[in-house]
Simulated scan of single mutants.
Amino acid sequence: MPADTNPYGGVFGGWLMSQMALAAGSLASRTGRGKAVVVSASDFAFPGAMAVGDELSVYCEIAATGTTSLTIAAEAIARERNGESQVKVAQGRFKFVLLDENDRPRAAAAPSKSFHPR
């Protein structure tokens, strides 16, 4: 939406990051089978521009599993509103910590071999 643009009329990078965090969080919660909170974001790049009205798709995969954490790589692809042209507009990594019912870190199990996040 126009409220999500930068002063130059392009989609604000912070909005893209928030959409990517939502997608990565969904994968973290589903894989971790419970509450997962983002604790860091890194390695962000914005190789392309997204226009207002473009369709955004975010693809995520588990990059690493720690003792209580999951690192998820996310890639954002924009498709032009009235066509088929696509461009990668952002990529980055999010680290999530899995929490128990008392909001304390809990062990992260290795993902199932049959799990395909894309």
Rank of each mutant, 00 (worst) to 15 (best):
F94Y: 15
F12P: 00
D103E: 02
G34N: 00
A76G: 13
V58T: 11
N102D: 12
A108C: 13
A107D: 12
A64W: 11
A3L: 13
D100Y: 03
L27E: 04
P111E: 10
S42H: 11
K88D: 00
N82G: 10
P117N: 13
A3P: 00
E80S: 08
M17Q: 07
V37R: 01
L27S: 03
R81N: 10
N102A: 14
T31K: 05
S114R: 11
A110K: 08
K95E: 12
T67W: 09
N6D: 13
A23M: 08
N102G: 11
S57F: 14
V38Q: 10
T31W: 07
V37W: 06
P7W: 04
V39N: 02
R106F: 10
N6L: 07
A21D: 15
Q86M: 12
S112M: 09
A110T: 13
L27V: 14
A63P: 02
S40I: 02
K35W: 05
N6C: 09
D54K: 00
A28M: 10
T65A: 15
V89C: 08
P2F: 15
K35H: 12
N6G: 06
S42W: 06
S57N: 11
I77T: 10
A110P: 03
V97K: 02
G9R: 12
V89K: 00
G92P: 02
A109I: 09
M17R: 08
G14N: 04
L16V: 08
N6Y: 06
L56W: 04
P2M: 13
N6P: 02
P2A: 08
G83E: 02
F44C: 05
G34Q: 01
L56Q: 03
P117Q: 12
F12M: 03
L16D: 00
G13D: 00
S18D: 07
